[in-house]
């Protein structure tokens, strides 16, 4: 163990640049987040006050300010749950419950995430393949690309309920129908982004390879593919966020009992607002992690290749 690197005391690694970063980037973000939390609390008091007053009027008691604050922030089914109520629910369903339990939010998140990831993988792979075809085949380019671009302007998410129900009726259930929705939602951004990426090399770069007598596949592997990566990653970020939305919406129509979408739906049926907010925050965390992972990958890969310097 003597060879272990010397880990500096906390904060020792934060040099001038680090402190600058805290002041320039972290402090404003924290301020805005704190302001949002404060607004949230104020909103909770304001929105839940009506119910408290009604209860008090029914009971014939006087509502004092401390009582109002206490009650509005601790109702069972508030119109707007306070942040700490949501935090408590999150703690209860994420940490206190076993991961395999049907009441664990981690379990529900995993159901949704697995469909998201499967669909995203399928959609991305197909998207890249189609983009390669479009770039190399003029007829495909002219036939397919306009439709791929147009598809971005229409709400294809509206197809989701039908896909779920139709696949159900032919006996396909569970993961796959949701993954299909995630797949086609991530498919189109990847096609469009990848096509512009593969076309990113300018005429001079292409001409240079031509003077070497490079073959089409050499041009593809040595120039087009590397140049396309910044575009690919940009569309992957869009695609994975869309895939998650697709998986969540895919859980709505059949009244599924598992998954984040199901938690949203059952929460809205039974007026369990705290449950809705907890599911919503969990979905937000999932989205942040997914986009964050893609972003990290982008940073590492593009950094290695010398982009963005």
């Amino acid at each position: 163990m003597s060879g272990a690197p010397n880990i500096a005391a906390p904060g020792a690694g934060i040099g001038r640049r680090g402190r600058l970063w805290v002041r320039a980037a972290l402090l404003p973000v924290l301020t805005v987040v704190a302001a949002l939390l404060l607004l949230w609390y104020a909103g909770a008091v304001w929105m839940n006050a009506q119910w408290t007053r009604d209860q008090a009027a029914r009971a014939g008691t006087e509502v004092t300010l401390p009582l109002l604050l206490q009650d509005t922030l601790s109702q069972e089914r508030p119109l707007l749950p306070a942040p700490h109520q949501v935090a408590a629910e999150l703690y209860d369903t994420v940490i206190a419950k076993a991961v395999t339990s049907k009441r664990s939010l981690v379990y529900h998140a995993w159901i949704t995430l697995s469909a998201t990831l499967l669909g995203f993988a399928i959609g991305t792979a197909l998207g890249i393949l189609l983009a390669v075809g479009i770039v190399h085949n003029r007829a495909m380019d002219m036939s397919v690309l306009p439709w791929a671009i147009a598809s971005q302007t229409i709400p294809i998410l509206a197809l989701a309920p039908m896909i779920i129900v139709v696949m159900n009726s032919v006996g396909v259930q569970g993961l796959l129908p949701k993954a299909v929705i995630s797949a086609y939602l991530s498919f189109f951004p990847v096609v469009v982004g990848m096509v512009s990426g593969l076309r990113a090399p300018d005429a001079m770069q292409m001409d240079l390879l031509k003077t070497y007598g490079a073959s089409r596949s050499q041009v593809f592997w040595r120039l087009r593919l590397p140049s396309s990566l910044p575009y690919l990653f940009a569309s992957l970020k869009v695609g994975i966020a869309a895939a998650l939305v697709g998986a969540i919406v895919g859980e709505l129509p059949t009244g599924a009992v598992r998954g984040l979408g199901a938690r949203l739906l059952s929460g809205s049926y039974y007026g369990q607002t705290v449950q809705i907010w907890a599911a919503l925050l969990m979905a937000a965390v999932c989205a942040a992690v997914l986009v964050g992972v893609v972003g990290l990958l982008q940073k590492v890969v593009l950094g290695r290749m010398g982009f963005g310097r």
């Binding site: 998650l244 809205s268 907010w277």
Partner: peptide, 13 residues
């Protein structure tokens, strides 16, 4: 980047 459609049940309420 968040799945904001998820706020729909709250806003409908």
């Amino acid at each position: 980047a968040l799945p904001i459609v998820g706020t729909a049940p709250i806003l409908v309420m």
